[in-house]
Design a protein around this nucleic acid. Sequence first.
DNA 1: GTTTTAACACCTAGGTGTTAAGCT
DNA 2: AGCTTAACACCTAGGTGTTAAAAC
Lengths: 218, 218
Amino acid sequence: MMNVPESSRTCSKAPEVASVRVQLEMQSLWRQFDQLGTEMIVTKAGRRMFPTFQVHISGMDPAAEYVLLMDFIPVDDKRYRYAFHSSSWLVAGRGDIAAPGRVHFHPDSPARGAQWVKQTVSFDRLKLTNNLLDDNGHMILSSMHRYQPRLHVVLVDRSHDSQRFAHRNFCTFSFPETRFIAVTAYQNHRITQLKIACNPFAKGFRTADSENRHTAPC
Amino acid sequence: MMNVPESSRTCSKAPEVASVRVQLEMQSLWRQFDQLGTEMIVTKAGRRMFPTFQVHISGMDPAAEYVLLMDFIPVDDKRYRYAFHSSSWLVAGRGDIAAPGRVHFHPDSPARGAQWVKQTVSFDRLKLTNNLLDDNGHMILSSMHRYQPRLHVVLVDRSHDSQRFAHRNFCTFSFPETRFIAVTAYQNHRITQLKIACNPFAKGFRTADSENRHTAPC
DNA sequence: GTTTTAACACCTAGGTGTTAAGCT
DNA sequence: AGCTTAACACCTAGGTGTTAAAAC
């Protein structure tokens, strides 16, 4: 398709949420990863995402309170494996039973619309784990499964406290270029190289003449 | 005096705050510093306190919401200087005009009583500065002046939103052993040694046979 | 003479991919 | 054979007192 939509949205009628717009930050970086087939490491202790899921928000009621949260939904019910000889992902059968569907609240939640729109909202403290018994509130994912991150914007309606997370007052945003396969070790070597080239914490693995330096990917 | 009161309190009548009890953590460490005359560094960029102001809270209504915040009040209107020959602080005249009286909200605010009482509440991210034009929300203090940290517990009353910080719904706690003189460089060498002995970030300055090792002060 | 500032070496704390070993 | 784990060296990020120079 020529024009990828800015975001996929399913909104309801409450005016304070219906007008909310969300723009993905670092979109070109996400697309570079997506073109190779993004992989995200999951560990027992929990691993951050890279790129980080960051958004710019607009259209909020400055005085209204909102909660921002993320979840991850399976893209399909398949299990994947990486074929090194062809450098591609293959379907390896039916997916495992879905892990407990957790949500990650942005730590600034709840906050006024004026706060959220003022600067980039970053989910950099979110961590991914493959530990089904995780007790640290991390997002539980199955390795070798494909996921779609989602952002939910929830209007806090104090006048109907019982409906704080009711079906009417929230909006869901989903950016196709942020899809990824969860792995315990990188499979695609080009993904590894792009991570090393762009993630400051991986600087120790950069080489002077690395392939990823020629085009300055980030 | 034989029994130092656990805390100095001025409470109002709202039942959810009147029953709140606050206990200073690391009290013996605070008293060791206090006996020498605690000094806290202030810098342009902002400096953490050591010891950190940490408290254990009880007596909160688990379901009610509270805001916790700190401020610093001048102990007197005097300016001090340190007499090295006698190793003591002397009054050096009238104090400067009080800096803008800022408050520091605990970053978890607001939260339910159940949250606050569950574990130690730490103000470790609070920073002190001598920059009158500070734009980072740090606490502005005048060097060579003496201060008393205070903790305020505010009940969030959603039913009377205009009174969120009204005079009825808060409690103030003040621990005399946390008093200190703000300095841009340490004056009393024994304070320096106690900081080095106890603050993990100053480990690089510890010596094997430092005086403060004999009694294991922390 | 006293007080403040900025650069500095040395820490804590924790985020990277690598690697070799372990698991199934 | 494929996948996972844990220890590791190497980073980022930022909290220490020290020191010498600057400011007043």
